[in-house]
Amino acid sequence: MYTPNRGEQFFEINGARLCVETFGDPADPPVLLVAGASASMLWWDAALCELIAAQGRYVIRHDHRDTGRSTSYPPGEPGYSYTDLVLDVLGIQDVLGIERAHLVCQSMFGGIGLVAGMDHPGRVASLTLVSTSTGEPGLPSPTSEFADSMPAEPDLAHLVSVVDHVVGAVRACAGGSPYFDEDATRALAERDVARARDYASTLANHYAIAADAPSRDRFGDIVAPTLVVHGDHDPLLPLPHGEALRDAIPGARLLVLKGAGHDLPRPVWDLFVRALVRHTAPGRP
């Protein structure tokens, strides 16, 4: 039976204090949502988490290091590597008593799911990779419109400037999607900036971590059932990135979200949730 979320909890994991929130019944199949770079748990909208949980899934979201209420490091000096972020996710599974979780990983941190799938296959029930890439040479660069529309660096001393920067970056990542909602994005950005321990670290540190990212040569070793989700308006990682990821992982399937950019806008939630629920169904081959 569905139960409401239990609020934020803090756990000491892998040398860091991580903020975690859960939704739904712990007896249901666990779905662990991993946000992209510089994104706290808030960017997996609570209403979306509730929607997934209502379909019989135990949903977990967390603040990465340097986002939200989790451990923060000085700007430009992250005290962790990409591998640490993978171990953080597995550590969350440990403290919640979850042996195998369905990992849903977004953007740059799709690599967390890829590493987990390659190096820790016994901990991964399935992978869902949203707006991510193999990173192989020859794939399209970000569009010129994306580059031209990215905002300048904010004045970190002024809250309004930081919020404007975040809204501008999300608008650019929407790639002209008709689904971009500026008012909702601004409200979320205001909450996110106010909630963070140090937003200067949030903006900088994930891009400064040690580059021990997954090896493209090993994608064929992934045995977890994999769903690739990609918007056809994505200007940062255009659709061929998702197609390449589908082709690189044995048996992977691709869901193209018409009208979506690099994010998961509310109008595509129903389609995304239906696909995710099918993908994570108990007993699925």
Rank of each mutant, 00 (worst) to 15 (best):
E243L: 06
L203H: 13
G231I: 06
P238D: 15
V160Q: 14
T134S: 11
R246T: 14
H241W: 10
G176D: 00
N205Q: 08
L188M: 15
I249Q: 07
A187E: 11
V167N: 03
P178Q: 12
G175I: 07
D183K: 12
P240Q: 14
A248Y: 12
R253E: 14
E182A: 13
D234Q: 10
A210W: 14
G138T: 08
A172Y: 13
A189M: 13
H230Q: 13
A152F: 10
V160S: 09
R246N: 09
E190H: 03
S201Y: 05
G231C: 00
R171V: 03
A211T: 11
S177I: 06
L255H: 08
L203T: 00
G138Y: 11
S177F: 13
F219N: 01
L237Y: 11
T185D: 03
Y179S: 08
A252D: 01
P140R: 11
R216W: 15
V162N: 00
L245R: 02
A194G: 14
P240K: 02
A196C: 04
V162M: 01
P140W: 07
S215E: 15
F146M: 11
A204L: 15
D217C: 03
E136W: 02
E136K: 15
F219K: 00
L203E: 08
D155W: 12
T226Q: 05
A187F: 03
A157G: 13
R197L: 03
A210R: 15
P235Y: 13
A147L: 14
R218I: 01
L156V: 07
R218F: 05
L254P: 00
E182V: 12
G175S: 07
A200F: 04
A172D: 10
R246A: 05
V162Q: 00
L239W: 15
D212L: 05
V256L: 10
S141K: 10
G220S: 09
A174P: 07
L254F: 08
A208L: 13
S161E: 05
A208E: 12
H206E: 10
T134N: 08
L139G: 14
P240V: 08
G168R: 06
L245P: 02
A187P: 07
H230I: 04
E136L: 07
H241N: 14
E136H: 13
A194V: 06
P214A: 02
H206N: 11
S161K: 10
S144C: 00
A194F: 01
V162K: 01
G135M: 04
R186I: 14
H233F: 15
G138P: 11
P178Y: 09
G220N: 01
D247A: 15
P214D: 11
H233Q: 09
I222K: 01
P154Y: 06
E182Y: 09
A204R: 08
G176M: 00
A224P: 03
S177D: 02
D148I: 00
L159I: 04
E243W: 01
E145Y: 05
Y179C: 04
V170L: 12
A157H: 09
P140T: 14
L239E: 11
P151S: 04
Y199L: 03
V167H: 13
A213K: 05
G168D: 06
L203Q: 06
P151C: 10
S201M: 04
A172K: 09
G175K: 03
E153V: 01
